[in-house]
Design a protein around this nucleic acid. Sequence first.
DNA 1: ATTTTTTGTTAGTTATATCTAACTTTATTA
DNA 2: TAATAAAGTTAGATATAACTAACAAAAAAT
Lengths: 220, 220
Amino acid sequence: MNITSNTEDYIKAIFHLTFEGSVNKVGTNQLAEYLGLSPASVSVMIKKMKSKHLVDYEKYGKISLTEVGHELAIKLIRKHRLWETFLHRYMNFSWDEVHEVAHQLEHIQSPKLIRELDNFLGNPKLDPHGDVIPDEEGNFSRTIRKSLSELEKGQRCRLVSVKDSSAVFLKYVTQLGLALSSEIEVLEVREFDHSMMIKYEEKVENVSKKFAESVYVEVV
Amino acid sequence: MNITSNTEDYIKAIFHLTFEGSVNKVGTNQLAEYLGLSPASVSVMIKKMKSKHLVDYEKYGKISLTEVGHELAIKLIRKHRLWETFLHRYMNFSWDEVHEVAHQLEHIQSPKLIRELDNFLGNPKLDPHGDVIPDEEGNFSRTIRKSLSELEKGQRCRLVSVKDSSAVFLKYVTQLGLALSSEIEVLEVREFDHSMMIKYEEKVENVSKKFAESVYVEVV
DNA sequence: ATTTTTTGTTAGTTATATCTAACTTTATTA
DNA sequence: TAATAAAGTTAGATATAACTAACAAAAAAT
Ligand SMILES: [Mn+2]
Ligand SMILES: [Mn+2]
Ligand SMILES: [Mn+2]
Ligand SMILES: [Mn+2]
């Protein structure tokens, strides 16, 4: 009864929607939406995952990972982020290109390869999107991240990570002239739509609320 | 109608049994034996592969790759051998460990990754087993390889590649104290069972016919 | 307290890929 | 040539993982 890469995708999705999200349980429809599948498919799959002791779940109830499922999720995230770092540093992949290929590479089964890759990269702490890479024991610091949207007029900050790993979003960030470590000053927050006027490296740009919510910062 | 990794395994197997073997066509039972599957499964699968124009085949006839199938096979072999080289050179994998993981990595879909990997490795010509790595256009030199078993008493040679990539065999080669480039002298060929007494680096060992057939050499 | 909407499940179907058991064709041997 | 052996195919079943359509439960609105 070994775990398929499909099941691994479900585990990762549940992790992202619970542990990394705001709630600790998720519904089948929500999960289906996130995975781009029909609610029916997810309903059936979750039942199978329950029988494999990967999730806690009761009919018509909410889904959460078991201890085993949680540990697997962290291992997958570790693999994903190590591969992203490798692709970015050594394979000349831009930060908007790494995710898709890392999503394939994370399913490769070889504990030795991951240990060696981690070592080769010098045990990196962060991936190309500023996300924390869990260590071999599954430990990692959970810093409460603040969105740019939470800042007020006049505050200054540094871009530390991004919420969204989609190529569309990351290309936009790059196009704006922003990257990890960019220093940003909030010049104005508009009452009307919560859009922001920000200044960075002599540039002044207007960004939407959605954008500001997708960017994590550290106030300086 | 895209190609699954299962289909890719069939393509590679057919390539190994035909182009790299002695014949240019293979039967379903032979292929089943090689893949460790039942002849029935192979029979069904080959029919599907025919409909996808990957193989030439008639019921009760023999199987061969189409032009498209052949090109795919070479791309897969290129990927496999580049990954083996990477694992051996940078991930501290011994030559008996690389094959299993490369077998997973060869299914990763990313032309850019393969181009970059090739570049990163300095466009290597040979993999850790002495096998030729096809270039991006699918070109590669087909040297007619000579087995150690073809040599006669008194001849001297250099180990250039191995026929078998199994861990069991490669570990035995290493244990004997042999590796690529090792210089070998044939001291004796026994009429009885075609076993050989060979000398290399001050060592004298007796090897079976099967062993001598699994090792490719260049006469010096 | 009903009705309506949202959320979630089940049944039946499809696609991929495997198996065993039974059968057929082709090749070999007597 | 007829019997036997080897090689290959088909049918029916299983496992995984997806879908649509129909139905059921829970939550929200009236
Ligand atoms: Mn990613
Ligand atoms: Mn990332
Ligand atoms: Mn190999
Ligand atoms: Mn090899």
